[in-house]
Design a protein around this nucleic acid. Structure first.
Lengths: 342, 342
DNA sequence: GAATTCAATGCAATCGATTGCATCAGTCTC
DNA sequence: GAGACTGATGCAATCGATTGCATTGAATTC
């Protein structure tokens, strides 16, 4: 019976190369501090033994895990998964791993201490504006500054670094597009109330209506849940009202899709009877029937920028004096779900 | 200036409760080994100090990270993100964190040693059948058995544990459905060649055609890439052939959507002119126009079962004598993209 | 040639939690 | 009342990598 081979440690490499563990460590992290001959011998020993670093030991010693945590309300949502992809790319390029937590609304305290305070992750990418960030910041009473970047959905706390889309302006552009097409009776399917993005988009909707001298019909402002099912329900409620708008600004593409789907079942056509503009430009938007007019959010960029900012903060290892706020623009993509009024 | 407060260690708690660190550790992991009075004092001290365990230290000592790694070709794909959601749920229920690696095709060696051999993750959930699992298994020459479960897309190596859908049978059912509707001229949009699922679905397609005495027209079997874009391209190629099938089995829903979209642009209607059946039942399938008939894969179950299996293997900490293969069924969901021939 | 400098390397402490073994104070038994 | 036993707790080694300080030997300077 062969004794179970253990993964080689830095000591094994040292023995192999007839140097001390310290030298091996230096070859690995600061090669120019070691003479060339020794360096080569050590590198050979690393190859021979098949050594790989033990991250747990390294993390313990360095008090850093080289890992970030991405937390989202629901990773299953394609919107977040696109961002996750960008986050992973950026993070792994800088030598960081990515831990993912989903459904964080359910027990914030639990995952919070589970991950952050336990040296499992060095920083947090937060994609949920409904979370109480005061508590997060309050955690670090010494003032060290828990590395934290909020993205996509801005938390109300202005002390938190953030990378977001200018939701209000984007909403205004979407509604202006409808107004530009001659629509005057315009509805809005809004997102769930805990969401900050929803509020901004609603404000943008109202602002665009206001600047055009149009009044908002409350019966045409219905709440959804950012999913397709709720888009259908929203259509139902709107169909039950006394009259119908000629155009609708949906808070996101999923709701737009559900909305249009329901319209069709009711014998109404988009865009013939009602124009619909969505938000996000999800993957299926150009392939839907009709192809969706929508505000494209730069999801890659949100993920990349937020990750870069977080890792910069982690590596600067200093309290952030001033919170940083990055605001990205959204682009109107005109397809076929909107057309001239009348 | 207050010195930077460090996160409290088990020593701090011990001092606070006037016991040894060993006792604190025991209170935390085997409470009944400690007298009730001490236990309460320690628990109080834990609360007072705000202690949280240092995972790095724990991992180092226990040689276990309580973390699993999910690797997929592209996490941005909604298909994987749904599974990821299930994986996270199951894993966190058992006290494990989830690391995510994406685009693993690009440099398998790198992430492999980065994660697995470095005590960062205790096991691997592999969602990419195109990866060379021999190498993975070969890593552990001592015979310890790298905990590994392949899911969704089965690798060719039968030594690997797996949780997959019965792709061949599912494909047969899909095609039988078309045949049952009277179709005889049936095409197939297949997935990318590296994919094992693609091969199985193709075999199922051929088997179903064969059992009905139908011949496969090679011009109607076109390759795609599992995304919508490639579904359009597939439609283009089929439209360029001498004649058209009356029904098509698409290797997944994304390609079905792209395919139908392209047909519409060419003045053809689904299902009037061509029936299309997809695969997966992605979120948008019921809301598409026409709502997609498709084979529903139990994605939650794939994620949950695979995770459970992996953690069982990790915790059993023994070489798996016999690889386990779980095969799940797929369900035909009939909507409106298929109808009677003629 | 002695003194100074510098590059290369080793020594040993450290990070924080776990656990086998030792110790200690009661309790029980005959 | 002495020995045996038991339950509760502490001691100290351990996991593997990093790094400040010490040491060595060689090169350089006057």
């Amino acid at each position: 019976m062969m004794p179970t081979k253990k993964t080689p440690t830095i000591q094994d490499v040292a023995r192999h190369a007839k140097v001390s563990a310290a030298t091996v460590s230096r070859v690995l992290s600061m090669p120019d501090r070691v003479s060339e001959t020794t360096r080569e011998r050590v590198n050979a020993a690393v190859r021979d033994t098949g050594y790989t670093i033990n991250q747990a030991a390294r993390s313990l010693r360095l008090r850093a895990a080289r890992t970030i945590l991405m937390a989202a309300p629901n990773i299953g949502n394609p919107f977040y998964s696109t961002i996750l992809d960008a986050v992973i790319s950026e993070a792994s390029g800088r030598g960081y791993s990515v831990l993912v937590a989903s459904r964080i609304g359910e027990d914030p305290n639990r995952w919070l201490s589970d991950y952050l305070l336990s040296n499992r992750a060095d920083g947090l990418l937060l994609f949920d504006g409904s979370l109480d960030t005061n508590r997060l910041h309050g955690l670090d009473e010494g003032g060290v500054g828990l590395p934290l970047v909020a993205a996509y959905d801005e938390p109300p706390d202005p002390q938190v670094n953030s990378v977001i889309t200018d939701n209000r302006l984007a909403a205004m552009r979407a509604v202006r597009h409808l107004i530009g097409l001659g629509h005057r009776d315009i509805g809005h399917v809004i997102g769930p109330s805990r969401n900050q993005s929803r509020n901004e988009r609603l404000l943008g909707f109202e602002a665009a209506m206001g600047e055009a001298g149009l009044t908002v019909n409350p019966a045409w402002v219905v709440q959804g849940n950012y999913n397709m099912e709720s888009g259908m329900a929203a259509a139902d409620r709107m169909l039950a009202s006394a009259s119908l708008p000629t155009a609708v600004f949906a808070g996101n593409d999923e709701m737009a899709i559900g909305f249009i789907h329901r319209l069709r079942r009711a014998g109404l056509d988009c865009p013939r009877d009602i124009s619909v503009v969505g938000f996000d430009d999800i993957a299926v938007a150009p392939y839907f029937d009709p192809p969706l007019t929508t505000m494209r959010q730069p999801r890659d960029e949100i993920g990349t920028r937020a990750t870069r900012m977080l890792i910069d903060i982690i590596e600067a290892a200093m309290p952030e004096n001033e919170p940083v706020h990055v605001v990205l623009g959204a682009e109107l993509v005109i397809r076929e779900s909107t057309r001239k009024a009348g």
